[in-house]
Amino acid sequence: MIEFRNVTKLLGGNAVLDNLNLTIKQGEVFVIVGTSGAGKSVTLKHMVRLMTPDEGNVYIKGEDITNATGADLERARERFGYLFQGGALLAWLSVMDNVALPLREKTDMPEDEIISKVRKTLALVGLEDDGDKKPSEISGGMQKRAGLARAIIREPEIILYDEPTSGLDPVTSRTIDTLIDDMSENLGVTSVVVTHDLHSALAIGDRIAMLGGGKIVELATPDEFIVSDKPEVQAFLESQYITKEGSWERKKS
């Protein structure tokens, strides 16, 4: 579905991605973890060409988007829903209008259909009562859920989550995790989650990739990831009080 071939990206003179090779399969929940500055968000941005590789190519469904422009790029981007770190809602529009924006701008759907679809999507993320509020009037977690509603309203094939749980309390974090889980279960979309929260990574991921120094340090299923003997992975696990011996139960069936 998404393939990185020998992607190198230099930012500030340093190689943030260093000859990265990565393949994400259709329908899976692929989690990218790593410390700050390890290139997680940069990887995500390459998938939608918010960033362009200095070397190497990025393929979406076998299509090279590295040099795509205009209509090609637009078509490639239409496959994606992108949940930004802060939600990236437009401040002067209500939550409802924000979610309706992609439909109003890019489709010919009649207004009443748009409204009913927006209501349905808001219900899906648990915001059915907050449609008329402005983004500044709702909490950070609700902003992220609204952002998610906007990301999925056009039923994309791939949803990218950039730090969906950062800055949220544990309870809200788990709610978001459940949402991500539901998306892939119910809508059958491919999900790519960038996070440094291992708890959610282990809970929702089908495969977890750990980035470090622009390369993949470890790529494994959650069960294998916990028992990995790579020192970077061990340090990362320990920092979040997750140990091999401790019981780690997946919520996912």
């Binding site: 939608v48 637009e74 981007r77 994606f80 802060g86 990236a88 809602l89 890019k106």
Partner: peptide
């Protein structure tokens, strides 16, 4: 502020031209 908080990028990803919008 919109640029910094990635709202402009979000518009571009929705294929909404920030220049027109």
């Amino acid at each position: 502020t919109m640029t910094v908080s990635e709202e402009v990028a979000a518009l571009e990803l929705m294929s909404i031209d920030p220049v027109r919008f």
